[in-house]
Write a protein that binds this DNA or RNA. Structure first.
Lengths: 148, 148
DNA sequence: TTTAAATAGTATTTTACATGCATGTTTGTG
DNA sequence: CACAAACATGCATGTAAAATACTATTTAAA
């Protein structure tokens, strides 16, 4: 059971932007910080933009900004938005060949478990991901601290 | 987020054996019933045997039997046993390059969510998967009903 | 001793995911 | 206006995990 890197990278982007604060960040900068594929990151950013989490400003001196406060970004919603396939087993999907589905209690049980999983994440926001640790995170990501 | 077919098939095998009851079932029979790869099913059965869920009897007239009562087979344990990789994101794995791990709260939060997921499954057993539906399941799997 | 079954190991194929590349579009700056 | 810096988009390719296939071996009943 895995989340995709897509979701993982989404979280990293949001953390980065939150720590960076007012200042714009670029995709290149984030890709280099985490040493991950710039191309892949572009698509992550694109979708984060479409879903309203961030604002992407084109053109020279463009970049990315958080579009919502860290407190308002729930992790449950984020996972639901970014993890495209939340179908745990075959009988969750459109194409299902399992012959016992009509009588099988597996799907409702797994649905309940999935709901519990997401409910925990609903208790946390991006702000909780930072907490007191913002300075430590800033150091790790080599973001010059805001106070200048 | 998916469970592997390996885990899915494990559940199907256990359901089949539970409905079949005292009588032995063969891998071929189960593979044909669900129209899935016999070869893949072999490995599932092998591991279910190693983990003590079922007994495999070799030789002519051999076959498979449940080794424990349906009531004693918890779904949480089954998923923990059969789903080899329960590492949700990179920072759960041995090889982790994410530079913010030391300050990042993601891992503990996801761990809590995973625990909630498994806790729900711990509330159910193989017996709950059958319930009153045993006759319906038997029909769907084309198992002649026990009373003869 | 033949046959039907599980067991085991290896190889191949599939597929979702990730990555790369080329090109387009937008926008600030000189 | 031209350029450069940034995101946007579509298509092609790579890759690793999972699934499947193949082949041989072991076991035990008839």
């Amino acid at each position: 059971m895995h989340l995709t890197r897509f979701t993982d990278y989404s979280l990293r982007v949001l953390i980065y932007l939150a720590v960076k604060g007012e200042e714009r960040s670029t995709i290149t900068e984030i890709a280099e910080t985490f040493d991950i594929s710039r191309n892949h990151l572009m698509k992550v950013v694109q979708e984060l933009g479409h879903k309203g989490y961030i604002t992407a400003i084109r053109g020279k001196n463009g970049g990315l900004l958080l579009n919502r406060t860290p407190e308002s970004i729930g992790l449950g919603q984020l996972v639901r938005d970014m993890e495209h396939e939340l179908s745990l087993v075959e009988c969750f999907r459109d194409h299902n060949d399992c012959i016992i589905t009509p009588a099988c209690r597996l799907k409702p049980i797994l649905n309940e478990a999935l709901a519990a999983f997401l409910a925990v994440l609903d208790d946390y926001t991006l702000a909780d991901m930072l907490g007191q640790r913002q300075p430590h995170l800033a150091r790790l990501m080599q973001i010059p601290t805001a106070e200048k």
